[in-house]
Nucleic acid binder design. Structure first.
Lengths: 206, 206
DNA sequence: GACAATAGTCCCCAATCGGAGACATGCGCA
DNA sequence: TGCGCATGTCTCCGATTGGGGACTATTGTC
């Protein structure tokens, strides 16, 4: 006679947390491609039925994950704003890059958004976008870019580069002939600083 | 009595071409996520057995596709190099961005590389990387960046931004609060030009 | 202490996927 | 012209997926 396969302690909130943690673990390990109802249930150590019962759908699971994923911006308590506009933006880019590089789930989300921009991923991106915008505004403080420069566009370009190079580092390990190891990352960081100072520095018009 | 379901004309090379074309069509329409043996066979109008027989595997199919995908660099016959280093790089970025935006298959490949860097995708990226490098060298001609500037790193940053923003345009339609419509793209292009001139322009040290 | 709600488990289902065996038949070459 | 190889088709298979129905039993409430 088969042992009755002892059932889990009954605690819905804890089970939901276990499921979300399992999903995050899978995403960090295999990316969103490996995220499935069955896989999450197995990883969480519970029946897959519970995944669909509590979150309805993979979309629902991702949406629920979005709330937790918003936590990463808590690490955004960067240093107090100092220096001119370029300095502050530079410090912001450094801090943002570090927190981005430290969070594989976030990286996978950024990459997956490009491949499968489902409503859930769109919402996730919108929330993050708002958070980053507020963060930038706070870090900028009262410093203003010099007139005649399209600061939003320039900032978008530099942020885009940071995103893409970080994703390349985690996947192909390099870009455009530049190996993204320790030294390469340093060169990129210096290049970003350099471009910021050239774009916004006071050496504008002597 | 069932009609004997007339069979295709027997021509292996043509069939292989049909399969590759079908794969490209699927990638352009649904991305690499929709690329499967069954889907390719159906789209090509032949039995899926032929896909595996001729290309062995999805990896093999992608590898074979890589040869065809290398064709896009044929459009790289940009204008003759004129002006200083910044001008030439600017023209190069414009041409590259235009051909990138015009090729949905290439965009999907760039996005998928970040998510699934399989050997086939790595090889595809390496080939493209070499091609772009040669292209840049040719476009640069005899112009040299001013000393003291890490030109490879700066170029990698600007290229990365161009890649990422193009991918965002095709997926989420915007980035960092910047809508990537006609006007947004123009602002990005101007920002890239602006950064190039600030980084490499002769207005270095007056 | 009885009872209802519900957390958890088990099992079945249809669909789809990649893969391969078996077979027919058209094409190229002698 | 005839023959053999290879091209194309049909069919079956095992695995996996998302989904849901049926059932058990625990928990907390009155």
């Amino acid at each position: 006679m088969t042992a009755p396969a002892q059932t889990q302690r009954r605690n819905r909130t804890e089970t939901e947390a276990r499921i979300l943690a399992a999903a995050r673990r899978i995403i960090a390990r295999e990316g969103f491609r490996g995220l499935g109802i069955v896989a999450v249930g197995t990883e969480a150590g519970c029946d897959k039925k519970l995944v669909t019962r509590y979150f309805g759908d993979l979309e629902g699971l991702v949406t629920a994950l979005g709330g937790e994923l918003g936590l990463w911006l808590g690490a955004a308590e960067s240093a107090a704003p100092e220096g001119d506009y370029a300095d502050r933006l530079g410090a912001l880019l450094d801090a943002y890059g570090a927190s981005l590089r430290a969070d594989p789930v976030l990286q996978q989300a950024l990459a997956w958004e490009l491949v499968a921009p489902t409503p859930a991923m769109q919402a996730l991106d919108a929330a993050r976008s708002r958070a980053v915008g507020a963060w930038m505004a706070a870090a900028r403080g009262d410093a203003r870019p010099p007139p005649g420069v399209d600061a939003p566009a320039v900032n978008a370009v530099l942020l885009a580069a940071l995103h893409y190079l970080t994703l390349r580092e985690g996947s192909l390990g390099g870009f455009a002939g530049l190996a993204l190891d320790e030294a390469g990352r340093q060169r990129v960081q210096d290049a970003l600083r350099f471009l910021l100072r050239r774009a916004f520095g006071q050496g504008d018009a002597p």
